[in-house]
Design a protein around this nucleic acid. Structure first.
Length: 264
DNA sequence: ATGGCTGGTAGAACCAGA
């Protein structure tokens, strides 16, 4: 494989509806591998041809009807693909592969968690916490150098949201979620590449709500998308970018892509 | 002004996202 490997992650909110901006991003950024979340399509209807035409011929899909769905689109050969179900409810929220150099790449879409941050009245919030806890157990057993990317749906630091105070009770930034994410990170000494390259409090939000009339004028962002790596893999990372400009593209996703380049 | 919008699906005064 090449000495360098560029990996991108993007919650695309329907890969079919947004195939044009996906193509634009791939042409401009040319990552070796693109990890998508919220593809919202069954594998049989995935727009494979658009990716193959751009050189992404090694494609692992884990989709379902209507909601969720993840995919890894790769120019480089990948093997040993796996699809884990951390909720044990059949939702398509993970796909993982082994890269040519032996490093594992795991693409995950953590549940949003519903509206109320209380599992006794909102089962979705409990499912989200359980999902992260099971990922924590999985992380503790990891013995292979790994890159973990995706939409974690948790903004951990105060500077990872537009207002720490305003979002303390808002699902995605509550202390109980932040603490759960902290246990997950500690379970494998995961390195948060987003903050390695853009130390707090540098702006690197990855999501802005559709509901603002002008997303940039209101600018109420959150850092929900993450790129983590095992300590030995993190040492190989050379660059990390957040493509905030993609939020202004025609028919945008509410998330923007994040990209890390590695030199192995 | 953190739901004001959005996509998929059915054909909704839906659901889910976060």
């Amino acid at each position: 494989m090449a000495d360098t490997l560029k990996i991108a992650s993007w919650n695309i909110n329907s890969v079919r509806f947004r195939i044009n901006i996906v193509e634009q991003f791939l042409k401009e950024e040319a990552p070796d591998i693109l990890c998508l979340q919220e593809t919202k399509v069954i594998d049989g209807d995935f727009p494979r041809a658009a990716f193959e035409a751009l050189g992404y011929r090694h494609n692992l899909l884990h989709g379902q009807r209507m909601h969720h769905g993840v995919a890894i689109l790769s120019k480089v050969p990948v093997v040993e693909d796996d699809r884990l179900d951390w909720q044990a409810n059949g939702e398509a929220r993970h796909v993982g592969v082994r890269l040519p150099n032996g490093v594992r790449l795991e693409n995950v879409y953590v549940p949003a968690g519903g509206d109320v941050p209380d599992r006794t009245v909102n089962p979705k919030f409990g499912q989200k916490l359980d999902f992260v806890e099971r990922m924590t157990g999985w992380s503790e057993g990891l013995r292979v150098p790994t890159i973990l990317v995706g939409d974690f749906n948790i903004a951990p630091l105060e500077c990872d949201v537009w207002s720490h105070k305003a979002l303390l009770d808002v699902v995605s930034h509550t202390p109980i979620e932040v603490e759960a994410l902290g246990r997950l990170q500690a379970a494998h000494d995961w390195v948060d590449l987003g903050r390695s390259f853009l130390p707090a409090p540098t702006r690197n939000w990855t999501w802005w709500s559709y509901r603002a009339k002008d997303w940039l004028a209101s600018d109420r962002g959150r850092r929900l998308d993450h790129m983590w790596a095992s300590p030995e893999v993190a040492k190989a990372a050379t660059e990390h970018k957040v493509h905030e400009s993609c939020r202004s593209w025609l028919k945008p996703s509410d998330h923007v892509p994040i990209v890390t380049e590695f030199a192995f």
